[in-house]
Design a protein around this nucleic acid. Structure first.
Length: 574
RNA sequence: CGGGAUGUAGCGCAGCUUGGUAGCGCACCUCGCUUGGGACGAGGGGGUCGCAUGUUCAAAUCAUGUCAUCCCGACCA
């Protein structure tokens, strides 16, 4: 490719609306251009990168025995009603109507469609197991898209779905996919951590996420890990042992005491002169439009995803102050939210965190303004069930080996889920077993954010001058830079090297623009070509310059050697 | 959904307070000069100032409304 003809406009400044480094660099270097909020044009350089990530993914998926297909982007409401998700999927699901007023949605994921395909085609146990995948655009109408390609509304994803007859079969495929994912990210030049995770809105029993560990702001997920063993988990799934804490309030008797204006835990703890670890905090959440109460030791926080799962709900949010007032009034109470408790709220389910079990002589709200019950014990509080609903914090102890857990941030680039029969059952998607009996498929699903992976690669590989693409997903492998295109000798050597590289199968760019050297160098660094060969002032000695973007190492060598270096390096990396 | 900010050329911005011929830098085109880390000079093209309504002799500028974009927050009792 001749640089003079290449469709790329680099900018001297970062776009004003970009926050994270991958967004800034991809926009400035001419890879992407925003069309509307959370939606981007993938310009030619970006598209080359994306195709490489796709190709690596495709190659490993095929090797792992999966088969590619392509499902529609537009989906009918009916299938979503069969799975039960039409009602329960939040506003992220982009709903629309066609000219006949038929309700449709843009696919945020494809469980419903794939299940309907399987239902029609996989009738016999003899046809199973099967793993089908596609690489396609998805749409999720995020509340607040940000971070460029990392959290857009439209994005490219590889999603695979497996169908098995047994749990053992699913387990085998799950491991098979985990290995394929490791291969994919390694080949992309992106080291990832496989962490335990919650399965979220897609549902299911077991899941893992593949996280690129990054020290940039773009890491949206907290990953807890242990130096002492191999434990690692996403914050929505992490568990821990709690360090020693005061759990006995030390009150000599149970009584109702005045606690004026103690509308927060801090105020209450200060007023009663007790640590917050002996206060029972009662939070009201709205799960699938119904209120629930979550009790937890007040020095700890609730992990909403865990809470949601404890109720097997789909949508969760904390109740608003007016909603709490309404609940109070409805139950005949007249107190501010700081004084709420399960007392007299018999129709609202109450769940307590495991940590509550250790509490003795504690403090709890009883729905009376400016009053709390102190010296309470578990028998004094209505609790429907216990569950782990606690958010782990760094410094708490590893559940496996007891060492303090550490936290880091990561970008989720892939995930694998065991779905079981979550979709096959409600959608009545079955095969006939050996006995001629209909059985629902046992399913798994496996996603990779293609566009997000490319952006994560930038977060992991950049410096003050620009992007440093891993060779395997770089838009081009090498740029050849004749410093002065008026210099016939420079141009001749540059052209010869270019031809040799091209015929060796190397993706080379010749920067034949009539620009000063500085401009060409800046652009080369910004765009992030892994290698640069410069034909400049040493050409009279028969030498060119070979430079490695990643390390900054450069050496003066003959054109033949420079070309061979690039060929060797690229072959080694692919 | 709440709060804040911003919409002026492809990008980054000034002008608005105090209404009167729409500007600057980068990018783009032409010529000259220059050619190892985003040169220089001269000339040039490009904007219904987000949109609508109003006030006014006159609106980028004032008012009202609306749309869009960005940031923060969305209640830990």
């Amino acid at each position: 490719m001749k640089m003079s003809k290449m469709f790329v406009q680099t900018m001297r400044e970062y776009p004003a609306d970009a926050e994270v480094i991958s967004h800034k660099l991809l926009a400035r270097a001419g890879f992407i251009r925003k069309l509307t909020s959370g939606v981007y044009n993938y310009l030619p350089l970006m598209w080359r990168v994306l195709k490489k990530v796709e190709d690596i993914t495709r190659d490993e998926m095929d090797k792992a025995g999966a088969q590619e297909l392509l499902m529609p982007f537009l989906q009918p409401k009916e299938l979503w009603e069969q799975s039960g998700r039409w009602e329960v999927y939040g506003r992220e699901l982009m709903r629309l109507k066609d000219r006949h007023n038929r309700e449709m949605c843009l696919g945020p994921t494809h469980e419903e469609i794939i299940t309907s395909i399987a239902r029609d085609g996989l009738k016999s146990y003899k046809q199973l197991p099967v793993n089908l995948y596609q690489i396609q655009s998805k749409f999720r109408d995020e509340v607040r898209p940000r971070f460029g390609l990392l959290r857009g509304r439209e994005f490219i994803m590889k999603d695979a779905y497996s169908f098995d007859t047994t749990e053992e079969g699913l387990d085998k495929e799950y491991k098979n996919m985990a290995q394929a994912y490791k291969n994919i990210f390694n080949r992309c030049g992106l080291p990832t951590k496989m962490v335990q995770s919650d399965s979220g809105a897609i549902g299911g029993s077991l899941s893992h996420e593949f996280m690129v560990i990054t020290d940039t702001d773009a890491g949206e997920n907290d990953v807890f890990y242990c130096d002492g063993c191999d434990y690692s988990a996403n914050s929505n799934h992490a568990i821990s042992k709690l360090p020693e804490a005061v759990t006995d309030g030390g009150f000599s008797k149970k009584e109702i005491v005045d606690t004026p204006k103690t509308t927060s835990i801090d105020l209450l703890a200060e007023f009663l002169k007790v640590p917050s670890s002996v206060i029972l905090k009662d939070l009201v959440y709205i799960i699938d439009k119904k209120p629930v109460m979550a009790l937890i030791r007040a020095d700890k926080e609730v992990e909403e995803t865990k809470l949601l799962n404890a109720f097997q709900g789909m949508e969760i949010r904390i109740a608003t102050a007016p909603e709490i007032e309404e609940i109070m009034t409805k139950h005949g109470f007249n107190a501010a939210k700081g004084f709420i408790g399960p007392e007299g709220m018999d129709d609202i389910p109450v769940i307590a965190d495991e940590s509550v079990k250790d509490l003795k002589n504690f403090v709890v709200g009883i729905n009376k303004e400016d009053k709390h019950l102190v010296g309470a014990n578990l028998s004094d509080v209505r609790i429907d069930k216990f569950a782990d609903i606690r958010l782990v914090q760094a410094g708490e102890l590893c559940p496996q080996c007891g060492k303090p857990l550490k936290v880091t941030r990561g970008i989720e680039v892939g995930n694998i889920f065991k779905l079981g029969t979550k979709y096959s059952k409600p959608m009545n998607a079955t095969y006939l077993d050996k006995d001629g009996k209909a059985q629902p498929y046992i399913m798994g699903c496996y996603g990779i954010g293609i566009s997000r992976t490319a952006a994560a690669a930038v977060e992991a590989h950049y410096d003050e001058f620009g992007i440093k693409w891993p060779i395997a997903i770089a838009p081009y492998h090498v740029v050849i830079t004749p410093v002065n295109i008026q210099d016939a000798e420079q141009m001749k050597i540059a052209n010869e090297m270019y031809e040799k590289l091209i015929s060796a199968g190397i993706e080379a760019v010749l920067d034949d623009r009539d620009e000063r050297a500085g401009v060409k160098f800046k652009d080369a660094d910004l765009i992030g070509f892994p290698f640069r060969i410069t034909a400049g002032k040493t050409i009279s000695e028969g030498l060119v310059e070979y430079k490695v973007r990643e390390t900054g190492v450069q050496e003066k060598v003959t054109p033949e050697v420079a070309v061979q270096h690039v060929i060797d390096a690229v072959k080694a990396a692919l």
